[in-house]
Design a protein around this nucleic acid. Sequence first.
DNA 1: ATTATATTTTAGGCAAATCTAAAAATTTAA
DNA 2: TTAAATTTTTAGATTTGCCTAAAATATAAT
Lengths: 221, 221
Amino acid sequence: MKISISKENHLKAIFHLESDHGTVTTNELAAALHTRPASITDMLKKLQKEGLVLYERYKGFSLSQDGKMAAVQIIRNHRLWECFLVDHLDFDWSQVHEMAEELEHLTSRKLIDRLDFFLGFPRTDPHGDPIPDSDGKFTRQIAQIPLPNLLTGKEATVTAIRPQTDQILELLQHKKIKIGTRITIRKKFDFDDSLEIEVDGGASTTVSALVAKNIYVSVQK
Amino acid sequence: MKISISKENHLKAIFHLESDHGTVTTNELAAALHTRPASITDMLKKLQKEGLVLYERYKGFSLSQDGKMAAVQIIRNHRLWECFLVDHLDFDWSQVHEMAEELEHLTSRKLIDRLDFFLGFPRTDPHGDPIPDSDGKFTRQIAQIPLPNLLTGKEATVTAIRPQTDQILELLQHKKIKIGTRITIRKKFDFDDSLEIEVDGGASTTVSALVAKNIYVSVQK
DNA sequence: ATTATATTTTAGGCAAATCTAAAAATTTAA
DNA sequence: TTAAATTTTTAGATTTGCCTAAAATATAAT
Ligand SMILES: [Mn+2]
Ligand SMILES: [Mn+2]
Ligand SMILES: [Mn+2]
Ligand SMILES: [Mn+2]
């Protein structure tokens, strides 16, 4: 009935890779989990026996419905704990991932549901990623676009940074940009695709095309 | 360097049994951990090799200084998480132990120290047990006595319930007695050693000798 | 002081999760 | 369409944490 921590990590990784590029391979999964392809094959056979993945040797694999549900639950745990760490223990988003990697495996369903209540049912984690509800349903996310696609002069809210590296975090922290920050593009420079932006209706600053591409914003709400 | 969850559980159990009756035996430890004596011997050999216990075959064993420090750290984690669960997630003390049993094994020292801060550096957990500080030092506890030893008419504060079973908790919950409750003995009945007590300066109630013996109180503070 | 009882340890095994090296299957390229 | 390269799987080990059954040791009772 209860899934081991290692199995949970495998299911979660499959889920993420599947969401990203529709399909997963043994090698990719091994890389994602810092393990070896042979170990993945071993684990896959066990997960299949438990009905958590559909697997045919040499042909590929994917999560079963049960596997998907299990994965989503862990992702929910992970993201809710990240909220707790950032909002209440005052960590910043670059630090919380590791800790959440452990916290996500706690087995009490009631604990996580109460935590959700305590946090006020947040809809996204500190990185802007959506948090599924207790039944595993992701609420429709508000449409988000990469910052370079935003029309000049139109105000928008930062909803995600992706991918989240320590380096971009450091840069954005310095420029006072985070999830929830309001941004308006003042000027687009065709020369290098850098942008001059206004941050929270105050000072202006310039970001490179690379930085801009990693910032996702939403014009609604 | 890092101690496995199972080893942490062993160290903690040894610590508790040692504190209780000064010494621990293989059988006791096996019972406490719901495992077999042979498994204890195996584990003891490993813990000795790592310098966490002092062990001589057939002669007995005890925690080394390192082992003691590790155990205290886990106990700190356990009790701080119990505080969080009761004070912020609104669980009651009978429910938190299991969850804390998992939470205590999280590896981030910084996490637990921030949690401590978030909680306001509590000195005892919801069961009245003392919480060591980040360096593993237990602050001197205020003197506590079993309720039957309290003088009639002298007001005191409930500081602990021991042992904590679900049954006594249920009873005390019904009578609105918990850690921090103020109690004054109004009458001691010699016939069965039951006590008539006043709870929080309000209504009076009667508790049996057995119940009274499990309630610890402090007159100071 | 023997003998009986209880405790503790060894011997041998098993399941989970990993690994390396080698074999098998698939995919890509010539 | 065969050969080469890549991917995936098997075979065989290892480590950790636990088990049962049997042997060793210590303790208690005649
Ligand atoms: Mn994890
Ligand atoms: Mn996240
Ligand atoms: Mn535990
Ligand atoms: Mn406690």
